[in-house]
Design a binder for these strands. Structure first.
Lengths: 171, 171
DNA sequence: CGACGGCTGGCGGTTTTCCGACATCAAGCC
DNA sequence: GGCTTGATGTCGGAAAACCGCCAGCCGTCG
């Protein structure tokens, strides 16, 4: 065990309600760096989210505002500063995710091809699963080449609901 | 490769002359964290030493002063703040090193015994070799149980000279 | 005898390597 | 339609390798 550690990045988090259950919002140095659902795979330990604060503290109000508009079907493109921490490859994948239009879907292979690595579809799946900011970075818009849901950190059922909602199903 | 890295610890270094050749002094956050000789084993890459500054900048003058006194035979115990970064075990070993009196020597096994791990003598040798602050943290005062020099990051010849000097040989 | 040299086996922390597991997909072959 | 194979990046854990050691055992040689 190393005895010196990295305590320089100031993290804080808040928890808000949503149609998909409680969402944990994490901010690093005042910029949104995480959005996690309950029971989500690869969700970091709660201790790593820093101090819990009220959702009224910056930068959370603006995040909550846009999320509410999205869930109301009135917002189709988030406009928020993000702090995405990961490997170069992961960041390149996440950068592509935000280019997938609302209501549309890509396959893992398509996304891999856009990166110039047509064979990296499997690696794309992995990086997708590590997306730290669910919903806002729309990893749910990536599905199997033959239309299968194949997987979702927050559970495939949530993925189905998100896609159906974006497709216009309002039941 | 990770794309976010640790740039929080401000490192700087200076190079000074000595009877044992040039010494590279490294400071982390204004505290001495390294002293390396030329050709030393396990010496980190020079890039990791940060910007090179004049030996007149803090905290180096005090370090140089005490080193000069040591090489003149007038100082037998350094009194400097140190920043020793390593594993728990390594730090426990280095903590013992500074307790070896000037002119004295311990065996690797003796040092291991002081840690309550009488069988860890070999691991002590390893940790000894990783000592980041040569001379001031006197890893040269540890020798084989049967008196052999067995090894030294800066070369066994330097170890022999250091020990002879501390024993009072002034030729 | 005793001192000394060389071999051997076991010791323990750290580093390196390796392997499997995955939110895939196309091609090739039944 | 099914089933196998290979390419891909990351992570976690297992295993092995690396050593600034040391005690015990056995020779050899004065």
């Amino acid at each position: 065990m190393r005895s010196t550690m990295n305590v320089n990045t100031a993290k804080r988090h808040a928890v808000v309600e949503s149609p998909y259950g409680p969402l944990t919002l994490v901010a690093t140095d005042g910029v949104l760096s995480g959005l996690y659902m309950t029971g989500q795979r690869h969700r970091p330990a709660d201790e790593s989210f820093g101090e819990r604060v009220a959702a009224e503290e910056a930068p959370f109000p603006e995040v909550v505002r846009q999320l509410a508009a999205y869930f109301a079907g009135e917002l189709t493109a988030f406009d928020l500063p993000l702090r995405l921490e990961g490997t170069d490859f992961q960041r390149s994948v996440w950068d592509q995710l935000v280019r997938i239009p609302y209501g549309d879907t890509w396959s893992y292979g398509e996304l891999a091809a856009r990166l110039g690595k047509p064979n990296a579809s499997r690696a794309v799946g992995l990086a997708n699963g590590k997306n730290p900011v669910g919903i806002i970075v729309p990893c749910h818009r990536v599905i199997g080449a033959s239309g299968g849901m194949t997987g979702y950190g927050g559970g495939v059922d949530r993925k189905v609901r998100l896609l159906a909602f974006e497709a216009g199903d309002r039941d």
